[in-house]
Each structure stands twice: as C-alpha cells, then as structure tokens.
Amino acid sequence: MATLLPKLIAACAVALASAGMCVPAAAAGTTAAAKEKHPKAEKVLKAQARKKPSKKAKAAVAGVAVAGAATAAVVAADPLEVNEPDITDTKVTEYACELNNKVTIYTNETDDSHIALRWKHRLHRLSRVGTTTGALRFENPHWGLIWIGIPAKGILLDSKLNRQLANECKNAEQSAIVAAAPADAVKS
C-alpha cells in the first residue's frame, strides 16, 4: 500500500498535466526563483515531458476513477445503507446478551427482507441473506455487521474485524423457554 500511493499520486499528476489543468511554476513566472534555470533540472523536466505514462500509471488512474464512481453509485443506489433507517410502524424486539450487551431489532411486517438493528446507540439497516440452514441472517456490508438469528439465540458479528460483538442474545420469549425447561426436567 505504501508503494502504491506515490505511484498513484504520480499517475494523477501526469493525468492532470496532460489535461492542461496544472502549469509548472517556471511557466507561470510568479517568482524570481522560478525564473532561474538549473541545467540538470531542465534535463529531467524535458525527459519527464517526453516520457509517456506507463500502462500501470494509466491503469491506476482508471482504477481510481472506477472506484470513485462505484462508491458514489453505492451511496446513491441505497442511501439507507449509510444513513439511519426509519423505524416508524415497526415491531420492536429487545435482546439481552452476555456481558450486559443489548441489541434491539426493529422489523416491519410488510418488508421481511430488511431489519433495523440498534447496537451501541446507533441504528443500522441490514438486508436479508439466504441461508441453507434456515437461520435468519441479515448483513450490512458497509458497516460489516451480521445478525444471525436461530430459535435458541441471536449473534451479532463484525465481519470487518472478524469477531463477535454480542453472543447469547435472547429476547423475552427465548429467555422464558430456557427458564421453563429446568422446571419441567425436575418434575419428571
């Protein structure tokens, strides 16, 4: 990454210079120091002007343009991925997790392909991802959040840092089932 940055800057400078968007200080004639000419510097400048940009430099400039356009397209395509979702008219389910963590899920009856998840005082919109196991899996690739809901519990993961954020998350209904199970076992 460290070696790519100077190459990228040089490629951008070449692209701007070829487009006529930047003018060398000597051509502008703004200072007396710029009017002085050094023979070696003049040779180097002439050699650089004659040299065509390499294929790598052209690819780097094109890559930066494509990456910028792709980022703008993602933000323009789905602004709710970045901005907080609207949670009016939603069903609220609160989960108590281990280590005293709390997760709140907001679901809309008309839209089962998205949920809003509150984690650490921030609201995130997650989209459903299909699974072969039947578990409910929702992801937000922008923030790297993954919510996996199974009948016994829920888990919140951070895919960017590859770690669990909250585990053993249970809502009131799931906690009631766990509390009732030992009482039934004692009776038998």
Rank of each mutant, 00 (worst) to 15 (best):
I146P: 02
A166P: 03
N162R: 05
N162H: 09
F138E: 04
E139N: 11
I150T: 14
N171E: 08
L136K: 02
N167Q: 08
N140Q: 07
S159E: 03
P151E: 14
L165I: 01
C169G: 01
L161N: 13
R137Q: 14
G149M: 02
L136G: 11
A172N: 10
D158E: 01
N171C: 07
L145A: 09
S159M: 09
D158N: 09
I155N: 02
I155Q: 07
A135T: 13
N167C: 09
W143V: 15
L156A: 06
I148P: 00
H142F: 14
I146V: 14
G154P: 02
F138R: 11
R163E: 00
D158C: 01
R163K: 15
K170T: 14
W143R: 13
I150G: 10
W147Y: 09
F138A: 11
H142E: 12
A152E: 12
N171D: 10
I150L: 11
I146M: 00
G149H: 03
I148L: 02
K153R: 13
L161K: 15
D158A: 07
L136C: 10
P141W: 06
L156Q: 00
N140S: 08
L145R: 02
W143S: 15
E168C: 09
N162P: 01
K160E: 05
R163W: 00
S159H: 09
L161R: 15
L156S: 06
A166M: 06
L156K: 02
I155A: 03
K170F: 01
F138N: 06
P151T: 11
I150P: 00
Q164F: 03
W143F: 13
N167H: 06
L156V: 04
F138G: 06
N167E: 09
I150R: 15
S159Q: 10
A172K: 15
G144N: 01
I148S: 08
I150H: 11
H142M: 07
F138Y: 12
I155V: 12
L156P: 01
E139Q: 15
S159F: 06
A172W: 04
A172E: 07
I146G: 04
F138Q: 13
I146F: 01
R163A: 06
G144Y: 05
A152C: 10
P151N: 14
Q164G: 10
C169H: 00
E168G: 12
L156W: 05
R163G: 11
A166F: 04
S159I: 08
Q164T: 05
L157Q: 08
